[in-house]
Nucleic acid binder design. Sequence first.
DNA 1: TGTACATCAGTGAACGCGCGTTCACTGATGTAC
DNA 2: TGTACATCAGTGAACGCGCGTTCACTGATGTAC
Lengths: 218, 218
Amino acid sequence: MSDPSRARQLRKQQTHQSLVDAALRLLETQSFSSLSLREVTRAVGIVPTAFYRHFQDMDELGQTLVAESFGTLRQMLRTARRDPRLATDVVDLSADILVTHVRAHPREFMFIARERFSPVASLRQAISWELRLFVNELALDLSRFPGLHRWSTEDLQMIAELMVDVMVAAVEALLVLPADRPELETELMSKVRKQFVIIGLGSAQWRATRDDALPTSA
Amino acid sequence: MSDPSRARQLRKQQTHQSLVDAALRLLETQSFSSLSLREVTRAVGIVPTAFYRHFQDMDELGQTLVAESFGTLRQMLRTARRDPRLATDVVDLSADILVTHVRAHPREFMFIARERFSPVASLRQAISWELRLFVNELALDLSRFPGLHRWSTEDLQMIAELMVDVMVAAVEALLVLPADRPELETELMSKVRKQFVIIGLGSAQWRATRDDALPTSA
DNA sequence: TGTACATCAGTGAACGCGCGTTCACTGATGTAC
DNA sequence: TGTACATCAGTGAACGCGCGTTCACTGATGTAC
C-alpha cells in the first residue's frame, strides 16, 4: 500500500499529541521546571522510557508546548482581523476577543504567562522570541489603521508593547479569577477597556504634540 | 546579664539571615518550586536538619522572602516621594528611580517577577496581596497630584495598575538584559518614559472627555 | 568567682521515595517476494 | 494469498542520586545559687 498514513504512524502521532495535551493539563497546577518526565508518561498511560520515542528530552517537549500555545495566540489575532466591528468598536472588540480566547484556551495562555520567566533557559528564550514576533505582528496590524500608518516603526512597536503588557496582565488576572464570581470578570473587562482607551487617547495626544514640535509634514 | 542581645540569639539571627540571603541568591537561576531545602542549607554551610530551627518548612521561608522583597519595593516609593524633582520631572524621575533600584536589588525584583505566578499557592497569594497593597500605595501618591485629587478611587486604582503593569514589564525586560550591552538599557528607559508619558496624556484626555460628558462641577 | 544544671543551634545516621536514564526485550505492523 | 524478515512503539528491570523528614545526640552558651 502506498497510503502514507499507515496505522503505526497514526498511532505514534496520537501518543505524541497525548503527551503534549497531558503536559499542558499538568502545567495548570505546576511549573515546567518541576514537571517530571515520569508524571507526563504516567498521565498518558505509557512507560517512562517510551517518552524517548517522541522527544529527545523534556526541553524538546517544552519547545513543542511553546509552538502550540502561540498558535492559539495567533489564531486570536486572525479572528480579530476578520471581525466587522474592527472599524468602529476596536476597543470593545479587543477586550471581547481576549476574554473569549482566554476562556476557550486557558491552558495555553496560562502556560505562556507562567513560563515567561522560567528558570529553564530554552523555554524562556523560546517564549521571549515568540512574544517579540507577536508584538511585531500587532504593530503591523496597528499600522493599517488610518491615523497610524505614518508612524515610525519604533513608535508603533512601543505602543504594541504597551498593549501587550496590558493584555498579559489582563490574562494573568483572568486566570486567577475564582470561577464562582462572574461579576469580577465584568469588572476586569471594564478596566481593560478603560486602559486600552487611555493608551489610544495618549498615543493620539502624544503624536499631536510631536507633530506640533516638528511640523515637517504638509 | 540583662542584655537581651545574648551571643546565642545573635548567632541564630545571623544564620537565619544567611538562609534568606542564600535562598535569594539561588533563586536568581531557578524557581522557588524547584529550590530544595538541602540546597539552601548546603549554601549556608549547615546540616539540612538545622533548617527546622529557623523555619517550619520551605513555605515559611517563601513568606519571609516575599516580605523582604516588598520591603525593597516600598523603599523605592519612599525614595521617589522625597525627591525634589517630583514636582517637575515626574516621568524621568520614575524611570530613573526604577532602573536604579532594580540594578541595586536585582534579586528581590527578580524573585517577585518570577514567582508572581508560582505554582506554590502560598507564595503566589502572598505576592498577589503585596502587589495589591503596592498599587494602593501608588494610587494614594497619585491622588496628591494637583490634577488628580478629584478622581474616583476606582479610576486612580486603574491608572496605578496600568503603571505597575508597565513597571513590571520594564523590570522583567531589565533583568534579562545582557550586562555587556549598556546601550540597550538606555533604549529601554526611553521606551518606558514614552509609555509613562502616553499614560499621563491619555489619563488627562480621558478625564477631560468625561468631564465634558458630565459637566456637574462648577 | 565557681559549680551544677538547663537550654537549644547545629550534628549525623538513617528511612523511604520519585527521579532520569541505560539496556535488552517483545510483539504488532509493514515490506519483499 | 502466504511466508520470511525488518521495523520500531512500547515494555520492564535495574542503576545511582538527591530529596524531605525522623530521631537521638553533642557541646557551647546561659542561668541559679
